[in-house]
Write a protein that binds this DNA or RNA. Structure first.
Lengths: 127, 127
DNA sequence: CTGTATCCTGAAAGATACTG
DNA sequence: CAGTATCTTTCAGGATACAG
């Protein structure tokens, strides 16, 4: 058995219809992770979100929030006042995502140095 | 204390230089998660990867692999044979990412139904 | 077999101006 | 305050052909 027998592949995960492919809420959007973090501490208004999310435009924030609302991770509450007030908050479903997100964030922090070193080494090797 | 005092925001995570912002390896790419999974069982050749990754083009696979190699998550070993053989494998660093990835994948599987329901409810409410 | 070289498309993001 | 309406930019991704 010295032959390199190809190890078996995981069964699912490879058809386009697999749940994980939709990697919901996180799907390719740039700001979703940070928005989730901003809402972690409680409900926030539109303008309150814009402050910590440096550089985000109103348009992109509105689009992102609507996508997250659509996926059931964020709720939007409109108060019929003047001037208008709207509050965004994590739903119970959204909160359950914080744990898995932490796992990835912690990994990023813990391995950032090694990762940057790898990038530098790659640069050096290429030239 | 009936006033809605804005809860404090997490300290970091919001400046553009924060480690987590680079969310390495995963950064916005469409195929990285699946490629990681394909390599989980052991080293694989370029053409072996193309099979389970239905629909990926050679160009995109090559680009993705190079990005992952650059981040130190994947190693590339070239064998000077004819015809040429190249094997890709997860590095030790890459392997440590599998755990956090599992957390998100498991979440996706566990909450897919609720998520799809939320999308339908959103559709209904909009019209 | 393992890629690269072009060209093209589409979706997200950014800039700017304006509205209820 | 909380967005929308346009327009432009950017870049990952896809299609196809070709190369070492």
């Amino acid at each position: 058995m010295t032959e390199t027998a190809p190890a078996p592949l995981p069964p699912d995960l490879f058809d386009p219809d697999c749940p994980v492919q939709s990697v919901p809420v996180l799907g390719g959007r740039k700001w979703t992770w940070r928005i989730m973090r901003c809402l972690e501490g409680g409900p926030r208004r539109f303008s309150e979100l814009r402050v910590p999310l440096t550089g985000i435009t109103a348009k992109v924030l509105a689009e992102s929030l609507r996508a997250m609302e659509q996926d059931g991770a964020v709720s939007r509450t409109e108060y019929p006042e003047n001037p208008p007030r709207v509050e965004y908050a994590l739903t119970p479903l959204g909160r359950t995502l914080l744990g898995p997100m932490d796992a990835v964030c912690d990994w990023s922090r813990a391995n950032l140095a090694e990762l940057l070193a790898a990038r530098e080494a790659f640069e050096s090797a290429e030239r």
